[in-house]
Simulated scan of single mutants.
Amino acid sequence: MKLFLTSNIGGIQEEKGRRVPCALDSSNHFTKLLQKYWKANSKILIISSDPENEEINDKFKALYEAAFKISGFSLSQIDVCDRRNENKFADMLYDYDVLILAGGHVPTENNFFVRLRLKELIKSYDGIAIGISAGSMNSSDVVYAQPELDSEAVDPEYKRYLKGLNLTNISILPHFQRVKDLSIGGLRVLEDISLPDSKVRPFYALVDGSYIFVENNKTTLYGEAYLLKDGTIEKVCEKDKKMLLD
Rank of each mutant, 00 (worst) to 15 (best):
S76C: 04
I193F: 06
L173C: 07
C22P: 07
L206H: 09
Y144E: 10
L121K: 11
L245Q: 03
L75R: 11
R117T: 12
P51R: 03
K235D: 13
K199W: 13
T168Q: 03
Y37C: 12
V98A: 07
D141I: 15
G209F: 01
F60L: 00
Q146A: 06
S194H: 08
F203M: 06
M92T: 04
L101W: 04
L187F: 14
R18A: 11
K123A: 11
L99I: 12
S136M: 11
H175G: 12
T220M: 13
G223I: 08
A67R: 04
S194K: 01
I100Q: 00
K218H: 03
H105V: 14
V179P: 01
L244S: 14
G72R: 03
E234N: 15
V106G: 00
G164D: 06
E15K: 11
E148Q: 07
P202E: 15
K36M: 15
K241A: 14
D50P: 01
D155F: 13
Q146V: 08
P202L: 07
E238F: 10
L116T: 05
N87S: 07
L173F: 04
N41Y: 05
E65F: 10
Y125I: 13
A66Q: 09
S133E: 00
M243H: 08
P156M: 14
V80I: 14
G104H: 01
F68P: 05
P107S: 07
G164C: 10
L121P: 05
E109A: 15
I233C: 09
E52L: 15
I56C: 00
S27P: 02
N110F: 02
K159V: 09
K32M: 04
L24C: 11
N110V: 14
T31S: 09
Y94R: 08
V114E: 13
D91S: 09
L33T: 06
I122M: 10
S48W: 01
S76H: 03
R115I: 09
Y144W: 15
C237R: 12
A23M: 00
C81N: 00
Y226R: 03
N216R: 06
I212N: 01
Y96A: 04
E55I: 15
L3V: 13
Q146C: 15
D79I: 07
E54M: 12
A134G: 01
L118N: 11
A129F: 14
E120R: 12
A90F: 05
V114L: 12
E148L: 12
T108F: 04
K229C: 14
S171M: 06
F113N: 05
F73S: 12
L244Q: 13
A205M: 08
L121G: 06
S7M: 05
T220Y: 03
E120N: 10
V214C: 08
R84T: 11
V80F: 02
L118I: 09
Y222C: 10
E234L: 10
D181E: 02
Y161H: 06
K88D: 03
E224Q: 14
D240G: 06
A225C: 07
E148K: 05
I170T: 13
S7P: 03
N87M: 10
K180W: 02
L75Q: 04
K239D: 04
I9Y: 04
L45M: 13
N169Q: 06
S171Y: 07
H175E: 11
F68T: 02
D50A: 13
Y158I: 04
K119M: 03
L101H: 00
N169L: 13
I128T: 10
E238S: 12
T6S: 04
Y161W: 15
K235C: 13
V114P: 12
S198L: 01
D240N: 07
